[in-house]
Design a protein around this nucleic acid. Sequence first.
DNA 1: TAGATTGTTAATCGATTAACAATC
DNA 2: TAGATTGTTAATCGATTAACAATC
Lengths: 219, 219
Amino acid sequence: MDKTKKVSITVIRRLPRYYRYLSDLKREGIERISSDDLSVRMGVTASQIRQDLNNFGGFGQQGYGYNVIMLHSEIARILGLNKNFKAIIIGAGNMGHALANYPNFSERGYEIVGIFDNSKDLIGTFAKEHDTSKSSEIRDIAKIKEFVSKNQVDIAMLTVPSLYTKDIAEMAVSLGIKALWNFSPMDLKLPGDVVIENVHLSDSLMVLGYRLKTLEIEG
Amino acid sequence: MDKTKKVSITVIRRLPRYYRYLSDLKREGIERISSDDLSVRMGVTASQIRQDLNNFGGFGQQGYGYNVIMLHSEIARILGLNKNFKAIIIGAGNMGHALANYPNFSERGYEIVGIFDNSKDLIGTFAKEHDTSKSSEIRDIAKIKEFVSKNQVDIAMLTVPSLYTKDIAEMAVSLGIKALWNFSPMDLKLPGDVVIENVHLSDSLMVLGYRLKTLEIEG
DNA sequence: TAGATTGTTAATCGATTAACAATC
DNA sequence: TAGATTGTTAATCGATTAACAATC
């Protein structure tokens, strides 16, 4: 990788998609793939694929293409999937439960180490199905400070009602958490070097509605 | 709106965010806003705001700015929020339940009219909290064809396990549904004029991981 | 070697920002 | 009217695509 110029976020946001397609190729037992063949599968230009990948280094070989297993693991490395990030879920409603049970996260090295809520009915119950380990147990949000001080927590997944999101986000940051995954329909402005990734479900749905209305198939 | 040139998807994807900020301004009782003031709030350039809005018509007034209530309702109209789209949820797991109870959708004219699953344990139970109406009852997926033939269904929200997503998506399209909201970590390729909007949670999380690793704050 | 395909430079395209005349 | 701010054109910037020499 060229150390001087940082890779544009546009390219970064395409990496998970490459990763998915390479996982598929791996599963199919395909050993090598050319940018041309991959471009057909993915519906993008071969040029874009080669440009994107060359932001991080020359993973291919002239006359051969790309080795699937090697490229797959290189992209995993670039994305940091080998880092074993530790995450907590704050808000154990339906969305919190959905995240706790999403199989893809643990597969990709994102480990849910704690789940918090303020509801007396939920505290003490288990959020992960068929899992009665400590990491599955819903804890009292009042104990979050103690938990974060004693355990590595890289990411906070925020699935609390919108009304509380701002306060909870600020609290998480004050505890030293550097990455927030925000599921509330608002933008969070926080001081310091905090990384925020939003999942704005209603935004996505509204775009779907617009495209349905105007029948914009691609996009 | 200029009828000849269609608006780029890049601009469309920014509209829900404008809509959110205008909702905030409305709530705050602010009557008018200049592109300059809005640009400060939103962290974008005033130029971009004016360019974006002028894709759809001149909603502002020189020397005055934009009337908040008027602009809010214009963006709602552009997005089709007055259309009262009817949606069904297929897959009544945690994610399906989360969508069924998400307050923002109904507020914005997206009505959940049916929820389907194949689990005998779930069928007959109610997915929406404090709601025992027919639209809240989880129905047998075997009855979906009959339901769609008798009711208007614009959108199918797909929250089934990945393994079934392709088949379920094809089934939905075969029933005439023209818009799919896909929550599985895969791309759907479907024939015909079908609009698909993906919510790739693990893609989003991987981007968060990358940005945390490299501490890219903006993005 | 000859053929295939990359890595990379150059050309094009589209999106963003700047500037300012129009006008409320 | 004078000041403010839009709508819109022009300039810039960045992203995508095309082309091809390098090389496996």
